[in-house]
């Protein structure tokens, strides 16, 4: 299903300076994206998933810098790219991004046709007439009916779902190799969300793109992803195929995330909840960042950061539990029986 390695981030460290204090948003994050696949990046807010995506586009805020690590893409190290001119060759053209809120991504004072057309004119060097034809084609491809009329309309004349389609159109208009989607459906209704997810899957096949999909919703992950990377406190702590992550998760944080699903709740009883809050990234983190919230943490978790352990050729996790010397600790029963429970509920409905 997936082809050659297309983009790989290795041990990325990103720091922000905020009022004289240093915040380490990425603490050595590694990730691979293969040709033709959809990789979902899951994590809570502050886990660094959006920061990671922004480094691929050279879009870090001014106070943020990549202090270590590399991003290999087509023989270039994007982490060393500093001139805006070099980024313009990549951003939008090779790697495009869709954001969460379609309203802030569009200019309210320009017609949507004009906004997409200028992207095509700039990146694909077409003249006005050609780029307009191309825009109409793209609008049609993202499922906007009557593109000729819609071309002349302004963003406020579109519903939320339609706006997100316009944003997607402007992202795929230049036929990028990689489409980064940052929570593209979080602001949308569930029925619209289902349609947008289907659209992204269809466009991925049609334009032969790889998709990096950032989300916190495990249901969305199950829907779109071929592979999954789980992030916590600025690191990717587990990566595997979507089946491996849902049926054979290895890192305690992944267990906790799955166990917190409301679908696993029993009415009248408390939901499983992860204690405490994620660690402050202003402070140095010792050992396994999840250890203070993990009731099953080992002694070593508080002392040393776990390395990456391979589970299968496609699955790895950063947890001491995979060390041969570690005691045998199994994931919570509820997590192991997730599929069983969901299937049982389906039968009833």
């Amino acid at each position: 299903m997936s082809g050659a390695l297309l983009l790989s981030a290795e041990d990325l460290v990103v720091q922000f300076s905020l009022r004289g204090r240093k915040l380490t948003a990425l603490r050595g994050a590694s990730l691979e994206l293969f040709e033709g696949e959809t990789l979902a990046v899951v994590g809570e807010s502050g886990s660094g998933k959006s920061v990671l995506a922004k480094t691929f586009l050279g879009m870090l805020d001014k106070n943020g810098t990549i202090t270590a690590g590399s991003i290999q893409y087509r023989g270039k190290d994007l982490a060393r790219l500093s001139r805006e001119r070099d980024w313009l060759e990549i951003r939008g053209k090779k790697i495009a991004m869709i954001f969460q809120d379609p309203m802030t991504a569009l200019n309210p004072l320009k017609t949507i046709g004009e906004q997409i057309r200028e992207v095509i004119e700039l990146h694909r060097g077409m003249d006005r007439r050609q780029s307009k034809i191309e825009t109409l084609k793209t609008l049609e491809a993202v499922g906007i009916q009557d593109p000729e009329r819609r071309y002349r309309q302004y963003p406020h004349e579109f519903s939320g779902g339609m706006r997100q389609r316009v944003v997607i159109a402007s992202a795929v208009a230049c036929k990028p190799e990689i489409l980064i989607c940052d929570e593209p459906t979080t602001a949308l209704d569930v029925t619209v969300q289902a349609q947008i997810l289907d659209l992204i899957k269809a466009l991925k096949a049609e334009y032969a793109m790889s998709v990096l999909f950032i989300t916190h919703d495990l249901g969305v992950v199950a829907n779109v992803a071929d592979r999954v990377a789980v992030m916590y406190a600025g690191q990717v702590i587990e990566q595997g195929t979507v089946d491996e992550i849902f049926t054979d998760p290895r890192a305690p944080y992944t267990w906790a995330l799955l166990a917190s699903l409301p679908q696993l709740g029993v009415k009248g009883e408390d939901l499983f909840a992860i204690k405490g809050t994620p660690p402050s990234l202003f402070k140095e983190i010792k050992g396994d960042a999840f250890a203070p919230r993990n009731p099953l943490a080992l002694e070593v978790d508080f002392v040393a950061e776990p390395p990456i352990f391979d589970v299968s050729p496609t699955h790895w996790a950063k947890t001491w539990l995979l060390d041969p010397r570690a005691p045998a600790i199994r994931p919570p029963d509820s997590v192991l029986r997730l599929r069983e429970k969901l299937l049982a509920e389906r039968k009833l409905s």
């Binding site: 289902a194 992950v221 829907n223 089946d243 969901l342 389906r346």
Partner: peptide, 14 residues
Amino acid sequence: ALLTAVPTPDPEIE
């Protein structure tokens, strides 16, 4: 329509 649109956290079912 609303109930089927909710994504289920399981790749097989989805």
